[in-house]
């Protein structure tokens, strides 16, 4: 048991280091000079050299890689080339937008997707089922950024209920802030809701055929009690798993959606940082995203391993 966990932990650390190396190397190849971006068209070579030294870019690459790793290990993420403030501070500020957005999107996706899946499964083969499946197909086919634009057309341009984009900050009041997150969260939630509806439906159909459900039915439990007590509970496991696995999809979605709605979140930060060659911010953020995905995978594997001893052999 302990051997298994140690093996997995070793793999985890190796994967994280590998990820860091890949990210660092990829950004080394990226053409462009952050100092040139800061100093503009009239920059003199001496000023550029001075700024290189200030940004630590004059050191050799292997040393910079080690310094970056060491910094991350001690919680120092470096200083942004563009904004000249600690990256940790930038990430903190932007996290206050992205995290609520992602949580809101997941809640919406579950709130829309699960009931639809349950209804579809309980009316298997009926018109309702067909309707839910059609919704799921549409949800997967409609690009979320286009859905976002359509929402803006209806609720901002047409009805004027919600702000078209931007984020006033939490200090503007909870209601105002939530209002500007409503459309982006919904746009982000749509494909997730479609997936959850499908997963819930098929998981419930599967469990409905299993022996213990048949037994429950045979015991004379009503259809709705059977659904609630057995089928739904069993369907929760794949839904939670999918939510975990969809994390990186959600992040990817956030990159585009935050750009559609001009939200000052992590997705927009990483996109702008790439555009401005603020490589230290890019490095830290990509590492953060990848690291989180790797950790989630690790947790899922570990859990399955604990539940199912057979998997430990692999």
């Amino acid at each position: 048991m302990i051997g298994y966990i140690l093996r997995r932990l070793f793999a985890l650390v190796a994967t994280l280091l590998m990820a860091a190396l890949v990210i660092f190397l990829v950004l080394e190849v990226l053409p462009g000079d952050p100092a040139a971006v800061t100093l503009g068209l009239n920059a003199s070579p001496e000023a550029l050299a001075a700024l290189h030294a200030e940004m630590g870019l004059d050191k050799p690459a292997p040393l910079r890689f080690l310094l970056w790793l060491g910094g991350m290990a001690t919680g120092d993420l470096g200083e942004s080339y563009t904004y000249r403030v600690p990256v940790a501070q930038l990430i903190g500020e932007r996290m206050a937008v992205t995290l609520p957005l992602a949580v809101l999107a997941i809640l919406l996706a579950v709130a829309i997707g699960m009931p639809l899946g349950v209804v579809a499964a309980s009316r298997h083969g009926k018109a309702v089922d067909a309707g839910v499946m059609a919704f799921a197909q549409a949800g997967l086919a409609i690009p979320n950024f286009w859905f976002g634009l359509l929402l803006v057309l209806v609720f901002a341009v047409g009805l004027g209920w919600l702000p078209a984009n931007g984020f006033p900050g939490w200090q503007a009041g909870l209601g105002v802030a939530l209002k500007s997150l409503a459309m982006p969260a919904l746009a982000l939630a749509l494909p997730q809701a479609a997936i959850i509806a499908r997963v819930t439906r098929s998981a419930m159909l599967d469990t409905l055929q299993e022996d213990f459900v048949r037994t429950a039915r045979a015991k004379g439990l009503s259809e709705s009690t059977t659904m609630r007590r057995h089928a739904l509970r069993n369907a929760l496991i794949p839904v939670v798993t999918i939510l975990g696995l969809q994390f990186s999809v959600l992040i990817a979605g956030a990159i585009i959606i935050e750009n559609v709605f001009a939200l000052p979140g992590l997705g927009r930060l990483v996109f702008q940082a790439i555009a401005q060659h603020d490589l230290i911010v890019v490095k830290d953020l990509v590492m953060l995203f990848a690291g989180l995905a790797i950790l989630i995978n690790f947790a899922v594997e570990l859990l399955y391993g604990l539940i199912d001893p057979r998997l430990r052999q692999a």
Binding site: P31, G32, D33, P34, A36, V37, L41, N42, A275, Q276
Partner: peptide, 27 residues
């Protein structure tokens, strides 16, 4: 992107044509 433009067009002169506004006064 701007960093790549600076690197390739502006610094390395690796270009045929480009469009940009030169906003420095009296330049």
């Amino acid at each position: 992107e701007f960093p790549q433009w600076l690197e390739r067009v502006f610094r390395n002169k690796d270009y045929d044509l480009s469009i940009i506004a030169h906003t420095e006064p009296l330049d």
